[in-house]
Deep mutational scan, measured.
Amino acid sequence: TEEYTYTDKEKADRAAKEWANRGYTVTVTQDGPTYRVRVG
């Protein structure tokens, strides 16, 4: 499991979509002003 942190919702959504397109399980959680994209 890897985790990426973004401050921009659009970038987080785009990253999540790209990982999902590659067949990974993706979870996006909002943590205050940041968005965490957990992959795998």
Score class of each variant (00 low, 15 high):
7 T>W: 12
37 V>W: 00
8 D>P: 01
14 R>Y: 09
29 T>N: 06
6 Y>A: 01
3 E>S: 07
39 V>T: 03
15 A>E: 06
34 T>P: 13
27 T>W: 07
27 T>C: 14
1 T>K: 08
18 E>P: 00
4 Y>F: 13
24 Y>M: 06
25 T>V: 12
4 Y>R: 04
40 G>K: 13
33 P>N: 12
9 K>I: 06
11 K>M: 14
31 D>Q: 08
9 K>F: 11
6 Y>E: 01
26 V>G: 00
18 E>F: 15
13 D>S: 08
22 R>K: 15
40 G>R: 13
36 R>M: 08
9 K>Q: 07
22 R>W: 08
20 A>H: 09
36 R>N: 06
5 T>D: 06
10 E>A: 12
38 R>P: 00
9 K>M: 06
30 Q>P: 05
18 E>M: 11
39 V>G: 01
6 Y>H: 03
21 N>E: 15
30 Q>V: 12
6 Y>Q: 01
25 T>G: 05
34 T>M: 13
32 G>T: 02
24 Y>A: 04
22 R>S: 10
27 T>P: 00
7 T>S: 10
35 Y>V: 05
25 T>E: 12
28 V>P: 00
29 T>A: 06
26 V>S: 03
36 R>P: 00
35 Y>K: 01
35 Y>A: 02
9 K>N: 04
28 V>I: 13
2 E>R: 15
40 G>A: 14
33 P>I: 07
32 G>E: 02
7 T>E: 10
22 R>P: 02
14 R>I: 12
32 G>K: 01
34 T>C: 13
38 R>L: 13
31 D>F: 08
27 T>H: 09
2 E>P: 08
1 T>G: 13
23 G>D: 03
19 W>H: 05
14 R>D: 10
25 T>K: 10
34 T>F: 15
12 A>D: 00
36 R>F: 07
3 E>I: 12
31 D>M: 08
20 A>N: 07
5 T>Q: 08
2 E>I: 15
20 A>S: 09
21 N>V: 09
31 D>H: 08
10 E>M: 09
17 K>E: 15
39 V>M: 03
15 A>S: 06
8 D>I: 06
32 G>N: 01
26 V>Y: 01
30 Q>R: 10
27 T>I: 11
31 D>Y: 08
22 R>I: 08
1 T>S: 11
29 T>D: 07
27 T>G: 04
1 T>A: 11
2 E>V: 15
39 V>A: 03
5 T>V: 14
16 A>R: 04
12 A>E: 00
8 D>N: 10
6 Y>C: 03
25 T>S: 10
23 G>S: 02
16 A>K: 04
15 A>P: 00
26 V>T: 05
19 W>M: 06
9 K>D: 03
22 R>L: 15
21 N>L: 11
32 G>P: 06
37 V>M: 04
37 V>F: 04
39 V>I: 11
5 T>E: 11
35 Y>W: 15
8 D>W: 03
35 Y>N: 01
7 T>G: 08
33 P>R: 05
4 Y>T: 04
30 Q>I: 10
9 K>W: 13
14 R>N: 12
4 Y>Q: 04
29 T>I: 14
28 V>D: 00
24 Y>T: 02
38 R>Q: 11
8 D>R: 04
23 G>W: 02
8 D>S: 13
